[in-house]
Design a protein around this nucleic acid. Structure first.
Lengths: 196, 196
DNA sequence: GTAATTTCTTAATGTACATTATTTTTCCCT
DNA sequence: AGGGAAAAATAATGTACATTAAGAAATTAC
């Protein structure tokens, strides 16, 4: 595991809790680095999710396929973000999500058993995840409401404003699958927006 | 604070962590009981949310008004559930949500300062909230996806299956505002479903 | 560097749901 | 218990977005 990876994840964690040198060493010992090429999968629908992931470099999408076979992206994960199929990881039951790399990527992963061990050995991590989940909840509640209350055009404009960096890295087809519209309709929206 | 309230919230907490007698006493000392009549508000949009709530009895709705003035319900809170405007409560900034009683209700509330104190005095509560938030996240991620990927009819049928008890207590107008459709369209859906 | 794929655009037609208005039913209040 | 208010049903018309199909542009792969 490279020094770069090590620094990035510890800096992420140190936003909320302070670890001493010994704790840092122990924590890092629970992680493994994994390289994944564009189009490869971290997990697939139906599998039990064995790991939780932190992105060091690259970009991935988390998505499901509905019964009609169409793709719904629930998040894009880029550098310094956490991702995974939480429901499957926690329950160790088959999951509903695919996680696929959109660019060659590097992630750090922690296994379920090491995740459990972590809380036993360094209870401070309860606090870290309490705060991390709390913040995630705030944005998911917001997104759940937006999904229901806003038009596709509003959702697109909000996404552009909030994640300009992602817009430039990800195809419109994927943006459409995130917004919950067809690529054709997104194309139409963009044309309309530009012409205004 | 009644013995009934006391037992219900401690039982809820003991699902995830074990408190000794002293800890239970301290925890309960941080709470206050509040009665609220049908149609009254716990919090209103624009206010800073001073408390987090646990429902002892009754039923409330958490909702926003969008810029067109229409109502979007993000959850119904009933007995043995937690609720609040988490974003506002945590940040102590003005919030976006209303919480209104649909029936005469009794809640236990904890203030922001007591919430902070709780983590200092009984760090086990980090674990409790870590697990609570983890579980909420799992269901919100699911709801965010359903909001985007399913038709109104599918969302209605899922809601009926998942929360049959709530269906019977809450008006169709409110169910419609939760599902993100008009009451007129929900009425049409129900007619169609019954006739099948 | 060029063929092969994939992505993006444009346009015609179709459908899920909104809006508005009216009537009927249920519920609430004193 | 009865009058008033809110909720629910029904129906006509309108709109946001889907679907299908075809061609143009951009990327990928060998």
């Amino acid at each position: 595991m490279s020094l770069l990876s090590y620094n990035l994840i510890l800096k992420n964690i140190n936003r909320f809790i302070n670890l001493n040198q010994e704790e840092e060493n122990f924590y890092v010992s629970l992680l493994t680095e994994r390289k994944i090429k564009r189009k490869e999968f971290l997990i697939k629908q139906g599998q039990i999710s064995k790991h939780d992931y932190f992105i060091i470099k690259g970009c991935l999408k988390v998505y499901t396929l509905d019964n009609k076979g169409s793709e719904h992206i629930s998040m894009f994960a880029i550098e310094d973000w956490w991702t995974g199929d939480m429901a499957s990881f926690i329950s160790q039951q088959p999951g509903h999500y695919f996680i696929q790399a959109l660019e060659d990527s590097i992630v750090l992963q922690i296994s379920k058993s090491n995740f459990d061990l972590l809380f036993k050995q360094i209870p401070k991590f309860e606090r870290f995840y309490r705060i991390l989940y709390q913040r995630s909840l705030v944005s998911f509640v917001q997104r759940a409401n937006q999904g229901i209350s806003e038009s596709a055009e509003e959702r697109y404009l909000n996404f552009v404003k909030k994640h300009p960096n992602i817009i430039n890295r990800v195809s419109q087809k994927n943006i459409a699958a995130y917004l919950g519209v067809t690529p054709e309709f997104l194309s139409l929206l963009r044309k309309k927006i530009v012409s205004v």
